[in-house]
Amino acid sequence: MTEAKEYVPPVIKAEELDPKFKYKMSKKHGAEKVMVCFQCGTCTADCPIARFSEFYRPRRIARMVQLGLKDRLLLNNALWLCSSCFTCVDHCPQGVEIAGIVRVLRNMAVEDKNLLPLVYKELAANLMKTGFVYEIPESRLQKRVEQGLPPLPKTNLKDVLKIFEVTGSAGLLEKVQTIAKVESK
């Protein structure tokens, strides 16, 4: 029989903690109730992603927010594995919107750490170019007509670009470094 490895708990240094982080988070739409998470683990138990990924754990994310482990959270690629199915939101006995917290953290990763998975940068680029997140080829648009479907209305691109600009998104997208793929194991 092989000897079981001794469990060494990961060390959290006090200077890593941002004690005000949870207050900042709880002012954001969707993350208001992060402080009342009592770590029951319902979110992780019911999370379809956690079943197949060894390191996506919604309960841990909520705890890390409470502890103020901001940098560890924002630099952790696991953040991008949530599929936003909202099962955790509907099941939380405390009414904590875990998926909302994850979304707030993703927004912060973009803003504070300039990190974004490549796919979203591409979708945003298509949206700014065509109004749709996919670049629909001319042949497709032609096929619509052949299939008897009405032509796709043209997007008012000027307005879409204005929205990217006034929400600060265009600037954020210019700065981001992209993450190609996220490992789940």
């Binding site: 739409h29 979304r103 707030v104 973009v110 998975p117 949206l127």
Partner: peptide
């Protein structure tokens, strides 16, 4: 006239999603 519903942009900026 319309554009993307905004959903895929929620990961980037919540205000962007809401406004789109």
């Amino acid at each position: 006239e319309y554009n993307c519903c905004g959903y895929p942009m929620d990961v980037i900026n919540h205000d962007l999603m809401l406004t789109l």
